[in-house]
Structures are given as structure tokens and as C-alpha cells.
Amino acid sequence: MEYFLQQLINGITLGSIYGLIAIGYTMVYGIIGMINFAHGDIFMVGSFIALIVITALGITVASGAGVIIAALILVLICAMLISSAYGWTLERLAYRPLRGSFRLAPLITAIGVSIVLQNYIQIAQGARVKPLQPIITGGHTIMKRVDEAGEFVVQISNIQILIIVTTLVLMGIFSLIIAKTSLGRAQRACEQDRKMASLLGINVDRTISTTFVMGAALAAVAGLMFLLYYGVIDFFIGFVAGVKAFTAAVLGGIGSLPGAMLGGLVIGLIETFWSAYFSVEYKDVAAFAMLAIVLIFLPQGLLGKPEVEKV
């Protein structure tokens, strides 16, 4: 029971990170129907930028709580802004020229961009893994049990709390943006019918750019969280996380924001529990197999709208 609870906490933390990345996939797919393969690499770039800023600021665990919080907010803003620049530029250079063209073309450029980003970071920052000393330490004991088998403690660390709370807050903010602002309305209109939206005076190009920027900003947040949680990053983390996050987006029902979050949680939980109870090696197999099973029996994903075949 305690073991289960501990894994649940770990799974939710991991799932939150996946969910944040998945939102970027789901928003872009929703609006232009394209798998932005490079999104995982934007996440990777985001975590590198966070690493650079953290190192530049020189914050360590000894800096004191107030300084750390202020510094991390600064890091977060920097990472979000700079990753947004990446997202915007990519959309502009690699995807916009192909708008309205052959469907597979942007997928190939996305794969190309993904290769470029990975190798660019590998050249610029080196191929070796980058370890970061833990900055946020400590935690809270939720449950403690002592029996003949020994002592077992269920803990939630401060960093886990930070990740879950940040995710919830951002999720709330972005849902509000989509639901209440004119930008959100424009996004939803473009999702439904891009041509009609442009006829009604919506700047479709700008709306799509904004979507990429929002996705990139969230990926950067995920990148920072990943960096703080695991403390190790390299140029290749984007691929695996990207595939998992896309899986999460599809699982949750692509195009749906809460779906992406839910899908992220499900993937995070499956991975954690599978590693905990069965084998660590096959955790990816479990996540992907789950995806296949869900799609076969529920093709629109968990929260997606069912599609009626128009004849």
C-alpha cells in the first residue's frame, strides 16, 4: 500500500511533465492537423536554456529559499521566452511555407528540424550528459510504517510538489486562454475551418504562430521541471520524451487540452507502475502497448470527440 502510494506520487509527477509537452502536440495538431515532430526537441532546447541560465546565475542549494524562488522564476521566464523564439522561427521557416500543401511534407520537415535541433545542441553544448546539482531538496513524509520487514516511508519531495502545482496552474491559465480570450476563440475557429476563419477576419497565420509559441513555452516549462527533477539532461532527451508525450496526446484524444493532461498522467502512471512492479526495461513497451490497445478500442482517445464517418 505504501509502496503503491509512493509510486502514485512519482507517476503523477512524471505524468505532469509528459502532459505539459503533450499540450504542445495537441494544440498544434488541433489547429493545423500536423504532427510537430520537433516539439520534443523544443522541450530539450528548453531544458538546456534553463540549465544555461541556472549556471549563469550560479544558484545552488545553498542560496537560500527566497533567492532560489526568485531565480527560478527568472529561469522559467527566460526559458519560456527563448524557447518561444525557437518555436516561432521553426514555424516560420519550416512549416509555414508548406501550409496547405501536401500533408506529408511538413511531417518530413518536422523530422528534419528535429535532427537539426538535436545535432545543433550536440555541437553547441557537447554530447556528454549535463549533470545539475539538486537545487530544491527536502520533502514531506506523508505516511510512515514500521513493521518486521523494516521501515517504509511515503514521501513527497518539494520538487514533486513544485512540478504538480506548476502544471496545475499553467493548465488552468491555458484553459482560460483557450476558453475566454479572443486568441482562444481565434484558435478554436481556425481548428474548425481555417478558410472560413480567415474570411471572418482572423489572422490565421498569426494564430498558428501563437499556437506554436504557446506550445514551445509550455515545453520549456516541462524542460525546466525535467532538469530540476532528474538533474541530468543531454541532447537526446527530446526524442523519447517527445514520443511519449505525443502518445499521451493521442491517448487523451488529440486536439483536447484536458485530454493531453489526462493522457500524460496515464502514460506517466503506466510507466512508473510498470517499472515498480514488473520490469524497468519494458516500461516503454507497456506505454506503447497501452496506446495501441486504447486506440484500437477507443479510436478517438479518452476525451476526444468521436468522429462520424461522412459518406
Binding site: 511531417l107 506503447f288 496506446l291 495501441a292
Partner: peptide
């Protein structure tokens, strides 16, 4: 057999997943 009923992009992601599964199994 099970996945070909899926729409294009879902098919793409499931085939991608399948490729990774095969690789992970070979690896482990």
C-alpha cells in the same frame, strides 16, 4: 490487423510505437 482501422496519423504513431517496441525488446 488491429491497427489498420485507425486513421492516418494514429496509424503513424502506432507504427512508430511498434518500431520502438521491437527495438526495446531486441535491446532487453
Amino acid at each position: 490487423f488491429p491497427v489498420l482501422r485507425l486513421r492516418g496519423d494514429y496509424l503513424a504513431i502506432v507504427t512508430l510505437a511498434f518500431g520502438e517496441i521491437i527495438r526495446v525488446v531486441l535491446l532487453n
